[in-house]
Design a protein around this nucleic acid. Structure first.
Lengths: 81, 81
DNA sequence: AGATATTTGTTCGTATGTATC
DNA sequence: GGATACATACGAACAAATATC
């Protein structure tokens, strides 16, 4: 469970918590971060989870594939010139 | 056809309509309620049908078997002590 | 035996309406 | 007024077991 910090956006708190867990290795490379799972885990709406995942993508911690999910690690199709 | 009531969630209207039809015997015990069929019948998306079926499961009016379908009646594997 | 259709389960992408801060 | 947050709703594709031909 997360203790919501008043005055801090939930999507940011989730993004920070996931970042910590990924860095700590609690969520292994290749691990799936599904929106439904995170919704239940953090008790927030899907849009909030998606905002957090978007932040993690910006931080290059995960990549997302439609119909498949969001996975820990670098995007294999990332930067090919 | 259903006359959608504004302000009432579609998944609930479908669940209520199916409940009425089951109670009236229009859908017999053992009858199949397939998601595709209900999508076409009510003209809604699959997620909406699934939400309605979830409600019917909560009401103990149907049970669902993956790969097979949702059936009217009590779950045969429900409560065995 | 093998191919095809059916069926639920899961996943992300998008849009809308409402409420709150 | 704008950003956040929640719930609903539609769309599309992948996965896997089952039923049928």
């Amino acid at each position: 469970m997360i203790e919501w910090q008043p005055g801090v956006y939930r999507w940011r708190q989730i993004a920070d918590d996931l970042t910590r867990r990924i860095d700590a290795g609690d969520i292994p490379p290749g691990g799936l971060l599904s929106e439904n799972g995170l919704m239940q885990e953090y008790g927030v709406a899907r849009a909030t989870v998606r905002r957090a995942l978007s932040e993690l993508r910006n931080r290059k911690l995960i990549f997302t594939r439609q119909y498949l999910g969001s996975f820990v690690g670098q995007d294999p199709e990332g930067d090919n010139a």
